[in-house]
């Protein structure tokens, strides 16, 4: 019976079915849409902007780690590249916002294709190490090239275009950014290509023997993930109106990793849940203690140990178990 239901929902197509399937997401979307009308708090809006942007960043990481099984230890590379290249083009070269976007997207594509071809054909660990090395290299450049980047002091004056200047407008802009990213994400992982990614994660050797060129599909994923992370970094920089080398450091990559694992690897809801949990917690904890990363380390270990599927899927499992138990008890009476 339950199986038939799943079957039916899977086979339903068209707009009504899609609306029904994502009912919780839609309710949430409506709440987010009216939220700025209810509260005047700039702080809360800024926090939500950060959540929206990091959701997209986490989606990009989830596509690699959760769906394809590719580990990157330097995903901040793209985030920071988007921020620095975009920000510098804006401040130093006075490029318009709409021109910067295609430029950083093209750089992201080139960068991921090159890294992919160089590293993904060998062992998986090479990709992880090389991304980390390149991210660290750029981080050093951002630190040391003080004339250009302001070094560790960072660089301010990165102002969004007039239309996006009010906080509310920027809030809606990043909300749309997240929604578009989600729409793409959902379609993509349910496409024939997306299914191949899961096949690669499950059993790379067999996927190859089925006739799929695994390298091509991995490169497709890291290109898409690279573009998403780059845009997230640029929009984050515009939201902060500030550039800092920390956008390129390991903590930023760890943010994406944490969000993916906490929300649930290889799940649709995971990136959003991860961002909603991690970002506000970071803010709250950092006001109490400098060692908040340590606390995150502990949370991370606990989740990996006890909720290995991530917060939502594990809780769903528990709920299903309870429901089953309840049904059993009822049918006995």
């Amino acid at each position: 019976m339950a199986m038939n239901q799943v079957n039916l929902e899977e086979k339903m197509t068209g707009i009504p079915a899609a609306l029904w399937r994502y009912k919780y997401g839609l309710i949430l979307l409506v709440l987010f849409l009216i939220y700025p009308l209810v509260t005047p708090s700039i702080y809360h809006l800024s926090l939500l902007i950060e959540v929206f942007i990091f959701t997209v960043f986490a989606i990009s990481y989830n596509l690699m780690l959760g769906y394809t099984g590719i580990i990157s230890l330097g995903h901040a590379l793209f985030f920071g590249m988007g921020g620095y290249v975009g920000g510098l083009l804006m401040v130093e070269a006075d490029y318009p916002f709409l021109l910067i976007i295609p430029i950083i997207v093209l750089i992201a594509i080139a960068l991921s294709v090159i890294i992919g071809f160089l590293t993904l054909r060998v062992r998986a660990i090479f990709f992880a190490m090389v991304t980390m090395a390149i991210a660290t290299f750029f981080w050093i450049v951002a630190q040391r090239w003080t004339d250009m980047t302001g070094g560790d002091d960072g660089m301010g004056g990165i102002i969004p275009p007039d239309l996006l200047l009010p906080r509310e407008n920027y809030y809606y802009f990043t909300l749309i950014f997240m929604v578009l990213a989600y729409l793409f994400f959902i379609r993509f992982v349910n496409s024939p290509t997306g299914r191949i990614l899961e096949a690669i994660r499950e059993n790379e050797e067999r996927t190859r023997h089925l006739g799929y060129n695994v390298l091509n599909f991995k490169i497709i994923v890291i290109v898409i993930a690279g573009i998403m992370a780059t845009l997230s970094g640029f929009f984050y920089t515009l939201s902060m109106r500030f550039l800092h080398p920390s956008y390129l450091d390991v903590d930023t990559t760890l943010d994406a990793l944490l969000m993916t694992v906490i929300g649930g690897m290889g799940t649709i809801t995971g990136p959003f849940i991860g961002a909603v949990v991690v970002k506000p917690l970071e803010h709250v904890m950092s006001t109490y203690t400098e060692h908040w990363l340590l606390i995150f380390g502990i949370i991370y270990v606990l989740i990996v140990l006890f909720l290995p599927k991530g917060l939502v899927p594990s809780l769903k499992d528990q709920a299903d178990r309870l429901r089953l138990l309840g049904r059993k008890l009822l049918s006995k009476n």
Binding site: R187, N190, P192
Partner: peptide
């Protein structure tokens, strides 16, 4: 269809 990225896999 392996490079179709935006159609649902069940539609095939």
């Amino acid at each position: 269809s392996s490079f179709k990225m935006l159609t649902h896999y069940l539609s095939y």
